[in-house]
Amino acid sequence: MNLGAASFAMQGGAAHGQPSPEAHSPVGQACQEIASRLGVSPHELYFLGDGPLAHTLALAGLATPERQVSAIERSEMLAQAKKTLPVSPAGHLLECEMGANAYSLGWVNGEIGTIQEIDSWGTRIHQSGGLLHTDLSYGLGILPTPHEWDIASIDARAFGGPMLGIMALKSRTRWSNPLPTFSPSFGQFHVDQRMVIEAAAALKRYTALAKTHYERISTFNKALRGRCTAIGNIDIAGDPAGIPHIITFSVLYAQGEELVRAFALEGFHVASGSACVSTNLEPSHVLSATGKLTHGNVRLTIAYDEPDDSLNRFLEILPRVVEGVRQA
């Protein structure tokens, strides 16, 4: 460990001076629950005030020649990119030359649901002497977690947890605190430990729900895609084989905000615009990067325990809502 006025460098693992919680204490058990999902040790976890902060610090602390970021990553990562890496129309990272750089590639995209092959890309990056940061938020608790990464960040709200950011730093990874004046002794907990306990409980519940209802939500995803195709002039984003509970489609000849209002009148809360900016009606850089329509888009994030009656009713009203907005 090297403490100085300008930097704080460490290998993965809890910082000196802040003991890890007892394994059998409530917070110790919570850390173990989260760590087991990630395939790391509890002492390799760090807890921060929110997800965007965890995303920002995770990538910023990797000391490499340059940071290369997939074009569909969150704004926190794109703001640090020296080079933006292109993706396919389905949102998969395209073939590119690897080097001894830091790469940021999210596992499951929170806007279009596309799943990246993190283990495959991580192996290639490591063979080139590079480091991989990944955002694991939207697949955690649903799919088997990839392991070929060096540092991961998670927004606990993605699985129904509190406003909490989680950073997992593998012990082999050298990482330097990019904000030494903000937190000169970068300890494991930067939040009330009760939030960690709440996040672990939320992740456990979410995992159980996803296991029970994954196939049912997948069936709805396929039905919705088919209904959009039948209506016509609707551009469906992402890979059909992606995560089923995240669906985005763009409606030609309609405005996104009008669609949001129309669905709200029917009792459905949907979103439009970019998924990672505070003013969510801003045009989506994810849709732009994948060559999809950036106006008239609708994004659904479906709860795994959403009742069938609700899902079926959405399919029923969709043609009427689209037609009504188009004619307005």
Rank of each mutant, 00 (worst) to 15 (best):
I72A: 09
E73P: 01
R74W: 14
R74Y: 13
S75Q: 14
E76V: 04
E76Y: 12
E76N: 04
L78E: 02
A79T: 07
Q80H: 10
Q80G: 12
A81Q: 04
A81W: 06
A81F: 09
K82E: 08
K83F: 05
L85M: 05
S88I: 05
S88R: 06
A90Y: 07
H92N: 11
H92T: 12
L93G: 14
L93Y: 14
L93E: 12
C96P: 09
E97L: 15
E97P: 01
G99R: 14
A100R: 10
N101T: 14
A102Y: 11
Y103Q: 10
S104K: 10
S104N: 10
S104G: 15
G106M: 08
W107P: 01
W107A: 05
V108W: 13
G110R: 02
G113C: 08
Q116K: 04
E117I: 01
I118R: 05
I118H: 09
D119I: 03
D119C: 06
G122M: 08
G122S: 13
G122C: 10
I125F: 14
I125C: 14
Q127Y: 15
S128N: 15
S128I: 05
S128V: 06
L132S: 11
T134D: 06
G139M: 01
G139I: 01
L140A: 05
I142Y: 13
I142S: 12
P144Y: 11
P144Q: 08
T145E: 08
H147A: 15
H147N: 11
H147V: 15
W149L: 01
W149F: 09
D150M: 05
D150A: 04
S153C: 06
I154M: 02
D155N: 09
A156E: 03
R157N: 05
R157P: 03
R157K: 13
R157E: 04
F159M: 11
G161L: 04
P162V: 03
P162Y: 09
P162A: 02
P162G: 01
M167L: 02
A168R: 00
L169H: 02
K170P: 02
S171A: 15
R172D: 09
R172H: 13
T173C: 06
T173R: 00
R174A: 12
